[in-house]
Write a protein that binds this DNA or RNA. Sequence first.
DNA 1: CGGTAGCTATAATGTGATGTTATCGTAGTT
DNA 2: AACTACGATAACATCACATTATAGCTACCG
Lengths: 293, 293
Amino acid sequence: MPLETLRSDWLDAFVAFAEHRNFTHAARELHLSQPALHVQIAKLSEELGVTLYRREGRALSLTHQGTQLLAFAREARERSREIVAELRGEPADAAVTMAAGEGAYLYLLGDALRAFTRRSTARLQVLTRDRQGAIDAVRSGEAHLGMGSFSSLPDDVLGTPLVEIGSCVVMPSAHRLARKRAIVLADLAGEALVVPPAGRPHRTALAQALETAGVAWRVAAEASGWDLMLHFASLGVGLTVVNDFCRIPRGLVARPLRGLPSVRYDLLSRRGARLGAGALALRQCVVDKTSRR
Amino acid sequence: MPLETLRSDWLDAFVAFAEHRNFTHAARELHLSQPALHVQIAKLSEELGVTLYRREGRALSLTHQGTQLLAFAREARERSREIVAELRGEPADAAVTMAAGEGAYLYLLGDALRAFTRRSTARLQVLTRDRQGAIDAVRSGEAHLGMGSFSSLPDDVLGTPLVEIGSCVVMPSAHRLARKRAIVLADLAGEALVVPPAGRPHRTALAQALETAGVAWRVAAEASGWDLMLHFASLGVGLTVVNDFCRIPRGLVARPLRGLPSVRYDLLSRRGARLGAGALALRQCVVDKTSRR
DNA sequence: CGGTAGCTATAATGTGATGTTATCGTAGTT
DNA sequence: AACTACGATAACATCACATTATAGCTACCG
């Protein structure tokens, strides 16, 4: 109970440790011996009365509380840097970090990011992450904001619904289905499809939908990323199903696909995060430029 | 240049010092010797490369940068307390602090504060301050928000216009001027007025307006605060001029006064402050409940 | 006007917190 | 099973920081 304020040097040590999840490496980064770092983390943990990490085999992983502390520590460090620069009269070159998938950057966030770089002086830093990676980046404070489509979010991450995206079937303009205005799952019976590798969410959703609709199909090719899928489709390898925000290459046509649930993209931020001016500006830009569709 | 993050114990020491502006007393509060505290502040100042306070005779006063640092340190401490409570699973009893004048509390903020206490679990802490006091409280981080009417604001304080308030003349219902719908400055010629003490802003504005309009008047009584002014008016001591948000006691009537500039009330927050959930909720309540009028 | 009270500031000195080296235990690896 | 990599703890060393002492400054008072 005799706790004033968390010692910032311990927090810095914790950030280094948490990023490596390895005392030896983190200690080297801090120009410190491994035992010294170990003791700091132990004291921090004891003072808080909270276990910050756990052993899993010989690997270490942060507890939930460790992750929360990491986010706090990163935020505090960032804030500290800002105030120091401000006091010294140096221009604050704060960076704003965003985590999202490649698809989001290529097809959804373009306008928003352009608007942001025009409006704000803050540097923009982007992390390309998959769904879980984006969530983790946001909850650990690695990124200020995240974007993606999520079936569920942990309690400590806040999602703002932005836009609903449907699917479309993409095929050569000469294809027999191109004459239809919209396509249903049954239309795809017997087709060879260009799909993401097994296990990727889009693949899973598509396969499941076709399965339950009793539609037989086969894999024409597996490709990662909308661009590559479309590329194979334009080579004539097979049809493909992509999100309807994709730009369709010449020679191909897209038709809305009914029967596949639409995907909602959310803007993520950490619950309880105190965003700085830059991050707020970016959030505003994303909401403004992305949500009306 | 070799600066990682500001040491939080030094910041705590600085907060204590800044609040007392006296090393000896602050050191006592920190259970520390005066030289020890002095050295901490000196090191902090040196590490920042910034002078934090100045001697004025035998008193010490914070520099502008000292004030900025104070605000930062208070915010950081607050944030640290929150995260500790959260990690331990204790309920965070964050407090939200507001600085305003008595008049604002009595006549403008009632609805907003009631709405806030219903909506948020955060404790509400109010500071009664005059104009300069409210500004100082906000820029030094003593208060999260401030409210009042200000002719000008320093760069580091952000004002959100809320509501324009006019003036009215208050008098016994039997008074000759009570038959008029609105009153102009000239109508007050020869009247005895209940006014605030010399130097108070309302007194200054009123006296100046009457002066330039060439209207002769005299002081019937001097009283601090709208309530007291109205009280004297209802005793029949004289007429009074108050903001038109005041509740008028029985037996008196109010008539709008033309010719006195209206006063704008602003909601204040520190530029660059990262407000927590509680303070944001309060701000929202104030804006919602106060601005439409 | 000089003495005094109250405080800041610096110097000299001591002690405890924190860092380092050394070493053991343990879990994966070959 | 021996090896490798790393976490954890202990023994010892050092450096940062606290304390006491004191000089210097400013206002105030008789």
